[in-house]
Nucleic acid binder design. Structure first.
Lengths: 228, 228
DNA sequence: CGGGTGCTTGACAGTAATCAACTTCAGTGG
DNA sequence: CCACTGAAGTTGATTACTGTCAAGCACCCG
């Protein structure tokens, strides 16, 4: 088995594990695969820009991609961070024809890249299998984004960080320990914070038994965090 | 023609003009109509609560419904305001089984109420027409919600208010004039502001030629607003 | 060892939430 | 028709939070 073939097998595995394809039957998945090409991205690579005509949507196979908007003065605000299994740009399959945000790799990333028109054609003619899978994926994204709005509006920086840490150590008993999936600056953006604010939030949480060593987080008392 | 029939005709018209049904063929629309009942709500009526088992989703035929989350201390944050033509709870058709937010009428409102299981059945068996319509609706909601996150994170209170006013007088020449679609307290919630903050934002905009008389807004210089 | 990058810390300013008092307005009933 | 009531909106004073700027630290890699 040569190296290319190995790589293709890995791609295929990751492709199958995507949220979009997870609940799909084989036939639909194969049809979808026909619309896909694959792309490797390096950190800071631009996937697409706000305002570009929309030609593809994407699934993240590995690594992370950040979606963000820019203000007129050039300030950036992240609106979503996509990790392995997430899709983005899929909101354009059934609505819209230009990207409404920037997408940039935040890490070495592998992406599946779907031709929008081909996918639209399949979704029109396959009896609804693909449309249902896409609708399901969109539902998840919508719920996540609504959650984000509520989180931003209801909780302070420290609360948002505490909440994020709790999500990450779900299922673990105290003392829990894990490694942040990405850089702190990206986490700050995901939580709607300046990097300095994230740093300060960690400092505040130190008093509640949260130890931070680089990307390694140790949580002594999970219940204390829940009370923040 | 008796009164009930008239009312039904009005319902039907509003039903057809819904975003969900707008691009639908007749057959699909009729099938969907079979899943619907109608409900009249009075201001502050609760449509459903966060955590309730999900049995229906809704379209707004007239009036307004606010969707909100509550913090542990009971503070409320609006995550979306639905007006005529909007749907809510439709994120549960293909994912999830409990409501993830509260829904409350913010005005006298008429709602179409769709049985989730019936809709799911149709979406499985109609060849994809309904699934595509739902996916399209979800796409719009997702785009709107992402826009909201970006708006919250990038813009100040005054900028968000100015932006909202500009949206409302789209197409009008200066001096533009219109009536707010709903109470200021609800607008404040929609923009992620306390009512006091909205009031102060209006006060600031007065200097830029925005006159506020109750719900009537007059804008002397549209370009000045765009520069905020 | 230099030099970049990412992160942290301090000082400060700006923005918006909160609380409280007051005004306006609409609807109600005498 | 007018006085009363309660809700909605405004304004002021204060506080809390977070963004920004600037400086310094830590780590990684050539």
């Amino acid at each position: 088995m040569n190296r290319t073939l190995l790589l293709n097998e890995r791609k295929k595995t990751l492709f199958v594990e995507t949220k979009l394809t997870a609940a799909m039957d084989m036939a639909t998945m194969n049809r979808l695969m026909e619309c896909a090409t694959f792309a490797n991205c390096y950190p800071r690579d631009v996937v697409f820009r706000e305002g570009d005509p929309a030609t593809h949507f994407y699934s993240v196979l590995s690594g992370y991609v950040r979606l963000f908007r820019q203000s007129s003065e050039g300030r950036e605000a992240d609106i979503r961070v996509c990790g392995p299994g997430d899709s983005f740009g899929d909101d354009l399959i059934f609505a819209g024809d230009t990207y409404e945000y920037h997408a940039q790799a935040a890490d070495k990333a592998m992406l599946a890249r779907y031709d929008l028109n081909k996918v639209r054609n399949i979704a029109e003619t396959d009896g609804g299998m693909l449309a249902r899978a896409i609708a399901s994926s969109l539902s998840g994204e919508l719920q996540e984004t609504l959650e984000c709005v509520a989180n931003d509006r209801l909780n302070t920086a420290v609360q948002r960080v505490a909440y994020y840490l709790l999500e990450q150590c779900e299922g673990q008993d105290a003392p829990a320990s894990f490694r942040l999936a990405f850089q702190k600056s990206l986490l700050a953006g995901k939580l709607g914070l300046a990097p300095e604010a994230l740093s300060r939030a960690f400092a505040t949480l130190k008093d509640l038994g949260v130890q931070v060593h680089g990307r390694i987080i140790e949580i002594e008392d999970i219940d204390a965090l829940k009370r923040v």
